[in-house]
């Protein structure tokens, strides 16, 4: 059986819908992982011990195990405790939490690296610790880690393919649907790869622009 790409156009609508869902899930998870990362970082550094310790364990577990395994846990685990989320939502949560932990690592390091004088200056003006963190320390830390967080977001896009295994109809699963009808895996997976590649380029372009803008504000 040779290759025959002429079957592809007939399934382009399914594939394009998959592209849309892939972008949606990537955006959703990226936003969750960004704000989740900030939240986790603040908790990990400043939370009371009874929050900090369980969080450290959670962080450790999430950094030391595969994303795919975590997706299974979240998807089936939530069902187990009676929460039946749509696959898309479970996918966003799973991907978002996974990368939030990685972002949190970066942000924690950056927060620690912010000069102590910044907190002091803010406190001297009468800001509370929380206000100083929110307005002075955390914004600087986040700005410092925009490039590595961007790399995490790129990784997130590619890992979004994994949510196909819990039934999210994104690009990979769309390709699989088309393959189910045509028995042409090579053609459709290559097409899917091409779309991922293009989305990836687009994302890198956007991230570079953001980085440049952040740099300019220094």
């Amino acid at each position: 059986m040779g290759l025959d790409f002429t079957v592809v156009p007939g399934y382009l609508d399914i594939i394009l819908l998959g592209v849309v869902w892939t972008i949606a899930i990537t955006l959703g998870a990226a936003i969750l992982s960004f704000f989740g990362g900030i939240f986790f970082a603040v908790i990990a550094l400043y939370g009371p011990w009874f929050v900090r310790l369980p969080f450290r364990a959670f962080e450790w577990l999430f950094m030391g195990t595969p994303l795919l395994l975590q997706l299974f846990l979240i998807y089936f685990g939530l069902v187990q405790i009676g929460i039946d989320l749509p696959a898309f939502v479970a996918g966003v949560i799973g991907l978002g939490l996974h990368f939030a932990v990685y972002n949190s690592e970066l942000i924690q390091t950056a927060i620690i690296a912010v000069d102590r004088g910044q907190m002091e200056a803010a406190r001297t003006l009468g800001l509370s610790r929380g206000q100083a963190l929110r307005k002075v320390v955390v914004p600087q830390a986040v700005r410092d880690v925009i490039p590595p967080i961007g790399n995490n977001m790129i990784a997130l896009l590619k890992d979004s393919a994994l949510v196909s295994v819990i039934g999210v109809s994104e690009l990979t699963l769309s390709a699989q649907r088309a393959i189910g009808n045509t028995y042409r895996p090579f053609e459709f997976y290559v097409v899917a790869a091409a779309f991922y590649y293009v989305i990836n380029l687009g994302m890198e372009w956007v991230l570079r622009r953001i980085e440049r803008r952040v740099q300019a504000a220094r």
């Binding site: 002091e120 200056a121 009468g126 610790r129």
Partner: peptide
């Protein structure tokens, strides 16, 4: 905390290394 934040609003402080907020 409430008290000291109130108090500090009345006391300006200038540091050797400025400590301006770079962002």
């Amino acid at each position: 905390e409430k008290h000291i934040n109130q108090v500090r609003q009345n006391i300006g402080m200038v540091f050797q290394h400025f400590n301006l907020f770079p962002h």
